[in-house]
Each structure stands twice: as C-alpha cells, then as structure tokens.
Amino acid sequence: MTLVQRLHNIPAVNQSPALRAFVTAAWLGWQIESNWARPFLFAVYVIARPISSVLILVIMYSVITNGATGEPIFAFIYFGNALYILVNSVVTGVSWAVIEDREHYRVAKQIYTAPMNTYAYLLGRGVARLIIGSVSVLITLTFGVLAFRIPLDINVLLFLAATIFGLASLSALGVILGAVTMQTARLQTDLGSLVSGGLYLFTGAIFPLDVLPSWLQPVGYLFPVTYWLEVTRRALLGAHAARFPTFAAFSDWGLIGVLALMTALLWLASGWVYSAALRRSKEEGLIDIETNF
C-alpha cells in the first residue's frame, strides 16, 4: 500500500474537511498524473523537458562565453533554471487542475457542491506535479553537477528551511492563479505556465537582478520566489554561490526570515483571492462554464 493510499484510508471521521479534501485531491491528482512513471512519460516529463530547458541556457551562455562553465555566473544560471522547474510544476499543477476538472472531466459542479474545503482541494491537486517536478529538479541538478562539474557545498538545514517556505509560497501562488483561472476561458496554454514563464524576468532565476534596470528591480523583491531561489542556491553551492550586489547584504537566515514573512503574506492573500474568486464565480455562473473556441 502506498503512502497516499494509506493516508487516504484514514477514517473520514478523524479528518477535518480541509485535510480530507487535500488528501483526496492529492490522491486524485496522483491517479491522473501517475502514468508518468511509464518509461516514455518519465523520459518526457522528468528528463526531456527540464533538461532541454536548461540546455537552452547552457548553449546561450556557451555561445557567448566559449563554454566558460567554471564561472560562478554559470552555476547561478544553471541552478536557478533547474530550481525554477518546481515553480512551473506547482503553479501549473493547480491552474491546470481547474481547467481539467471544469472542461475535461466536467466535475466542477460536483466538486464545488461537495461538503469539503475547496481551497484545500486545489492545493491537493497540485501535489502530484510537485512530486514529479521535484524528481525533475533532482535529475537536472545531478546532470549539471556531473556534466559541468558544478561544485556542491550543501547546508542541509538551510536547504530544508528554504524548501519548506519555498514550496509553501509556490502552492499559495498556484492557488491564486487557480482562482484567476476560474474566471477565465481556457487559454491556449494554462495560466500557470504563462505566469511562471513571465516571472522568469523578475525573480533572478536566470540572471542576477542587478542586470535589470534599477526601476524594474523592486518588482523582483515582491515575489517570495526570488528569495527562495537565492537562498536555495546558497544552501546548495555554499561559497561557490555567486553573490551579486542585490542580496549581498542579507545573511542566509536573514533571507529565510524574509521568505517566511512573504510566504505568510502570500498565504493570507491566496485565501482572500480564492474566496473572492469563488464568490464571483457563483455570482456570474462561472463554476462550470465551457469556454472552448
């Protein structure tokens, strides 16, 4: 019996509506996504996509620098991009679940009338992709370390703290985008992918924030992802992590503090945005809208 099954078998009476919704949604998401464990799909999602996206940057970098992969900026770009896979996975997982439930499985009505916490449900639906994304990150990082000899210097405690707050903030962001998705038509690509692609620009994932014009840099400070990427790089690369002026003044745990605070704020915001979106969906009759064109 898998862990998810075991969790799912906890008697319902012992579960709060939120926990029940979360566990059931995680189980459902896993059932939908778990075929990724097949070799072909594993190759697609866990290897081909992430490695390709990181190789694009490696080649862009190498074309200009003649392959100077030993520079700190290379490790900065590589690790930032590898970690960013998780942003895409989590954020996309939730917003895609909204579309999938509404327009593919057409179960939106049943979900929003069930006596459960639908906020927790949405969070749960993101879990499967989070797990898949985590495996991708691991493989991409390992590839980088082996292929480009990126030196590791891991601070486990710092890494764990960064991961906990990072994932929490990503999940909250996912729910916010899920809430927005509830209001919109099915776009060509899902909102999660679009936003995570756009945030590439501001979060210092693939270039130091200092490269941005000074008037744009503050936008990056508004996103917890920025702090999460910075502190995780430090936790994994140690002294090898490139320190650019932007965050040089912050200590590692200072960054964790900022990340924790911002995560808390984002959670509050996600709860508010979600209830507002749900209310508006009910007012406008958008819960089970069909938007194909």
């Binding site: 940057l57 620098t65 038509a185 776009l187 060509q188 909102l191 270039f207 490269v211």
Partner: peptide, 24 residues
C-alpha cells in the same frame, strides 16, 4: 483576458532571455 495573459507574460519571458545575454 487572453490578450493580457497570452501576450504580456510571454513578453516578460522573452525579455528574461534577453537579459541572460545582457548578463554575459
């Protein structure tokens, strides 16, 4: 809404790649 979502965010992504080249 697609006009916003499908143009503004991809635009930001492309600008991100431009800054990668700028950074090197």
């Amino acid at each position: 809404s697609w006009l916003f979502f499908e143009t503004v965010f991809p635009l930001m992504g492309v600008i991100g790649y431009i800054y990668v080249y700028r950074s090197v």
